[in-house]
Amino acid sequence: MEQPVRHRGGGGSWEEVRDAVAVRGSCVVYADVDDWVPADVGAPELAAELGADDHARLVRMPASRNRDRFVAARLLLKAAAGAVFGAPPRELELAYKPGGRPYLRGIDQLEIGLSHTEGLLVVGLTRVGRIGVDTEPADRRMLELGTEHKACTPYELECLEEVPPERRNRDLVRLWTLKEAYSKAISQGLRFRFTEFGFSPPGGPIRMLLPDGTPRTGREWTFHSWLVEDAYTVSAAVKDPGFGEGTPSGSSAS
């Protein structure tokens, strides 16, 4: 998978996103919340843009940055999916599986993923299988708060010790987002213990590993992690049961 595509809202072109999905099967799109949040979040016409279920959730939410992200993320997701299908976003119905995983009701040709944090929105799109995405501020404090012992396998803890101290927290954030992305892709979320699977250290292809560091998944899964806007870590997990485009073992972090 190539680098994530930024979309700046408004009447911006979706050609790069459409081409990525058509040629490579998958694409990750990111955007600034402020580029997608409407001027009036309480406007009645948003009911048609969001759909009945999400609009009902919106009206119960107090005015906050969380509400802005909620609205902007869903408008971005529906616009991106609509661009791939060549359909108006309001004609697409966003629904949720029991674990909270979003999907497009009545559409099996496109799997979607969604994540957001602070001012960033991230959407994953794939026509080859399943996708999960996750994002966190790259400098979010995780190290030495106990997070590493709840989220890392023994092998990952050993590898973290070999990372220069100034980069160690960022690599823990990278591991966390990769695990979140995979858990979302398989509709498990935080119910799947992160100490039961791990990922290879930075500097090469990203592979899923068993707790002792031996390979876990086959060629059907690829994993990706990027630094975007010099501020956020974005990770994606993609399953392609048909061994479509993409490197068998994932792509390296950048």
Results as ranks from 00 to 15, higher is better:
residue 129 G to C: 06
residue 104 L to A: 04
residue 44 P to H: 11
residue 139 D to T: 11
residue 153 T to C: 02
residue 139 D to G: 07
residue 103 Y to Q: 05
residue 143 L to V: 03
residue 254 S to I: 07
residue 66 N to E: 14
residue 55 H to S: 11
residue 243 F to R: 12
residue 37 V to H: 06
residue 65 R to H: 14
residue 180 E to S: 06
residue 231 A to P: 08
residue 148 E to K: 05
residue 181 A to H: 02
residue 194 F to R: 00
residue 184 K to H: 03
residue 201 P to A: 08
residue 226 W to N: 00
residue 42 G to A: 09
residue 187 S to P: 03
residue 237 A to E: 01
residue 245 E to A: 10
residue 195 T to D: 09
residue 5 V to E: 03
residue 173 V to G: 00
residue 231 A to V: 13
residue 29 V to H: 05
residue 195 T to P: 07
residue 195 T to G: 13
residue 2 E to K: 14
residue 2 E to A: 15
residue 119 G to H: 09
residue 45 E to L: 13
residue 63 A to D: 12
residue 69 R to P: 03
residue 246 G to P: 03
residue 49 E to D: 11
residue 126 T to H: 03
residue 122 V to C: 10
residue 227 L to G: 07
residue 98 P to I: 07
residue 163 V to R: 12
residue 111 E to R: 11
residue 143 L to D: 02
residue 200 S to T: 14
residue 245 E to R: 14
residue 146 G to M: 08
residue 200 S to C: 14
residue 35 D to V: 04
residue 117 T to H: 04
residue 2 E to F: 14
residue 128 V to S: 03
residue 93 E to D: 13
residue 185 A to M: 07
residue 120 L to M: 06
residue 43 A to Q: 01
residue 170 R to Y: 09
residue 240 D to L: 05
residue 34 D to L: 08
residue 139 D to Q: 14
residue 160 L to Q: 07
residue 220 E to P: 00
residue 238 V to W: 01
residue 233 T to Q: 10
residue 221 W to S: 10
residue 247 T to H: 10
residue 31 A to T: 03
residue 18 R to M: 11
residue 241 P to D: 13
residue 173 V to R: 02
residue 127 R to F: 05
residue 103 Y to T: 04
residue 23 V to I: 10
residue 22 A to N: 15
residue 71 V to F: 01
residue 223 F to K: 07
residue 181 A to W: 03
residue 202 P to Y: 08
residue 185 A to P: 02
residue 50 L to R: 01
residue 155 Y to H: 12
residue 147 T to V: 15
residue 228 V to F: 11
residue 83 A to Q: 03
residue 135 T to M: 07
residue 25 G to E: 12
residue 121 L to A: 05
residue 11 G to F: 13
residue 128 V to G: 01
residue 114 L to Y: 00
residue 162 E to R: 13
residue 123 V to P: 00
residue 82 G to T: 09
residue 10 G to P: 02
residue 221 W to D: 07
residue 207 R to S: 12
residue 44 P to D: 10
residue 238 V to S: 00
residue 179 K to D: 06
residue 111 E to C: 10
residue 165 P to T: 08
residue 179 K to F: 11
residue 51 G to L: 11
residue 135 T to A: 15
residue 140 R to K: 10
residue 150 K to L: 12
residue 167 R to K: 14
residue 29 V to E: 04
residue 43 A to E: 01
residue 170 R to H: 11
residue 80 A to E: 01
residue 176 W to L: 06
residue 3 Q to R: 09
residue 217 T to K: 13
residue 114 L to F: 00
residue 36 W to L: 05
residue 162 E to K: 06
residue 210 L to A: 08
residue 200 S to E: 05
residue 190 L to W: 08
residue 175 L to W: 03
residue 49 E to F: 09
residue 202 P to Q: 10
residue 198 G to D: 00
residue 118 E to A: 14
residue 224 H to F: 15
residue 189 G to P: 02
residue 176 W to Y: 13
residue 191 R to E: 15
residue 161 E to C: 15
residue 214 T to L: 14
residue 161 E to P: 03
residue 135 T to D: 02
residue 135 T to R: 03
residue 225 S to P: 01
residue 236 A to P: 01
residue 169 N to H: 08
